[in-house]
């Protein structure tokens, strides 16, 4: 069983602020982490490997320093890591990113592709399903449990608002996972030591045989026009009490403001 886990290095958003002058993220001194949902995807792959055997490769696209995220994945126990890094990839939106990742996955070969449900910086939740579309394979998102994996099929539980669906799929398949799926293991010391020395495979646009017009800014149908922090409005009032008291207070307020 060949598995590829797509991970993303993201700033630890608990500590991210936006520069109000330039409307850009202040990344200085903000530690980078593996997108937390992706860590659950790594754990899921490792658990499948423990039961069904096989090989797990962590894949990311980013600047050379994204290697740190891959080494972290290696220290948790993935077998191999590949970094898509090329100037041609710069400025990719989710579409171009998914295209690029899908080309790499074709090269690596995979029966199961795992992604976090979304990244905590962009929050789009698009890249996983888009990869599946590019690869023309089924995808199941928001996986909360993997019941079976092996023998050319997989049975999973998909989290829904009002419960969960049990879905069986043939392989290859792409899964995106939620936190409920598992408790990720911490790295081991031997894993960390091996990860430090491990060779990380670098993949360029040429390596994956990508069409240049589909990459980076050129291949991105969407572009970010502006990022800004919404101004926090201070003139807010919290109403306290029972539901009845709060409703009464709210009506009084609205009448007072001549809204009613």
């Amino acid at each position: 069983m060949n598995m590829v886990v797509c991970i993303k290095q993201v700033p630890d958003t608990a500590e991210v602020r936006i520069n109000p002058e330039t409307n850009t993220l202040i990344r200085d001194g903000v530690p980078s982490i593996i997108n937390p949902y992706d860590v659950h995807a790594i754990e899921a792959a490792l658990q499948i490997r423990e039961k069904a055997g096989g090989k797990v490769t962590a894949l990311t696209m980013g600047p050379p320093q994204a290697e740190v995220a891959l080494r972290e994945a290696l220290s948790m126990g993935v077998d191999d890591a590949a970094l898509l890094t090329d100037r041609a990839f710069a400025g990719s939106d989710t579409w171009a990113t998914a295209y690029t990742l899908s080309k790499a996955i074709q090269l690596l070969g995979a029966d199961i592709i795992l992604c976090g449900k979304q990244a905590i910086d962009g929050d789009t939740a698009q890249v996983g399903p888009e990869i599946a579309e590019f690869l023309d394979i089924p995808h199941i998102s928001y996986i909360r449990k993997i019941d079976e994996a092996g023998g050319g099929r997989i049975v999973v539980q998909r989290l829904m608002d009002d419960g969960f669906d049990v879905i069986e799929s043939s392989l290859p398949v792409l899964l995106t996972v939620v936190r409920e799926l598992n408790v990720p293991r911490l790295p081991s010391l031997k894993g960390k030591m091996a990860a430090k020395k491990a060779m990380i495979r670098k993949l360029t646009a040429a390596d994956i045989g990508a069409e240049e017009s589909s990459l980076g800014l050129r291949g991105s149908p969407t572009q970010v026009k502006n990022i800004f922090a919404p101004e926090s409005r201070k003139d807010r009032k919290m109403l306290e009490g029972t539901i009845e008291e709060k409703v009464e207070a709210l009506v009084r307020e609205l009448v007072g403001l001549k809204c009613l």
Partner: peptide, 8 residues
């Protein structure tokens, strides 16, 4: 158990 898995 966690300490064991960590090799410590």
């Amino acid at each position: 158990k966690t300490i064991a898995q960590s090799d410590l």
